[in-house]
């Protein structure tokens, strides 16, 4: 199927300490265990992403705060996400995400 790319700027709560309120998982190929990217696993009720309302489970994370995750191993991508959340996120009070979402075949 085709995918659409979406950019979200998700405001963090004033303290920003609760983060996005999203858990993400790494997916890989069953055949050769090649890393296939980081995907949204759950959106925590009442969290920043839930309040914002646009992120969906199984969205693939493509970039965070302007830093691409493509071409990285799942582990490196998660490290990039973690680092970006702690420094960049709190400074700007929001997190910019680019995600890829499968478009249902019409």
């Amino acid at each position: 199927g085709t995918r659409e790319f979406l950019t979200f700027e998700i405001p963090l709560s004033d303290s920003g300490s609760a983060g996005l309120g999203v858990s993400v998982k790494g997916n890989r190929s069953k055949e050769n265990h090649a890393d296939l990217g980081i995907f949204v696993k759950s959106i925590i009720h009442g969290g920043a992403a839930c309040e914002d309302g646009r992120l969906r489970i199984n969205d693939q994370l493509i970039a965070v705060n302007g830093e691409s995750l493509l071409g990285k191993t799942n582990q490196d991508a998660m490290e990039t996400l973690r680092k970006s959340m702690s420094t960049e996120g709190n400074k700007r009070g929001m997190i910019q995400l680019i995600v890829a979402r499968r478009v249902a075949k019409r």
Binding site: K25, G26, R28, N74, L81
Partner: peptide, 12 residues
């Protein structure tokens, strides 16, 4: 689909 989770999950 030939996709599976690699077992790592982090909360952001």
């Amino acid at each position: 689909r030939n996709l599976e989770e690699d077992g790592t999950v982090i909360t952001l």
